[in-house]
């Protein structure tokens, strides 16, 4: 199972990298999202998948799954949610002001100084 998850994380990184290398802004935003999700899956896998009962009060079990990676992922997901929302609005504003969603079109006279 760990191997499958690692492969999935790798595919997510691959897709994300491909999307970030394109010139379309919305693809770049989606690409960053893929990369963050790849990182989240990686945390989950690196810390070991399910090894016991869920760490909840009231469950009588000898072995519990480590809850920390899930807490870390939750935090990271919330952060990436906020960042993606901001990035999306930023791309939208840039499109509004510059009239293009192509990163080549962002070049202006200023960038050569």
């Amino acid at each position: 199972m760990e191997i499958l998850m690692s492969v999935i994380a790798g595919i997510l990184f691959m897709v994300g990298t491909y999307l970030i290398l394109s010139k379309n802004m919305i693809r770049i935003v989606l690409g960053t999202n893929f990369i963050s999700h790849g990182a989240h899956i990686l945390i989950l896998t690196m810390a070991g998948l399910k090894t016991g009962a869920p760490p909840l009060l009231g469950l009588e079990a000898t072995n519990y799954t480590d809850p920390l990676p899930q807490a870390l992922i939750l935090t990271a997901i919330v952060i990436s949610f906020g960042v993606t929302a901001f990035f999306l609005v930023l791309g939208y504003r840039t499109y509004k002001v510059t009239g293009t969603d192509n990163t080549d079109g962002l070049r202006g006279p200023d960038s050569y100084d």
Binding site: I28, S36, L42, A76, T98, G108
Partner: peptide, 21 residues
């Protein structure tokens, strides 16, 4: 100018945050 530069700045930092994770 700010919009143009910030798009790159945000992208770089999102990637480095992913690397941090």
């Amino acid at each position: 100018k700010q919009l143009r530069e910030s798009f790159k700045y945000v992208l770089i930092n999102i990637l480095s945050s992913a690397l941090f994770v």
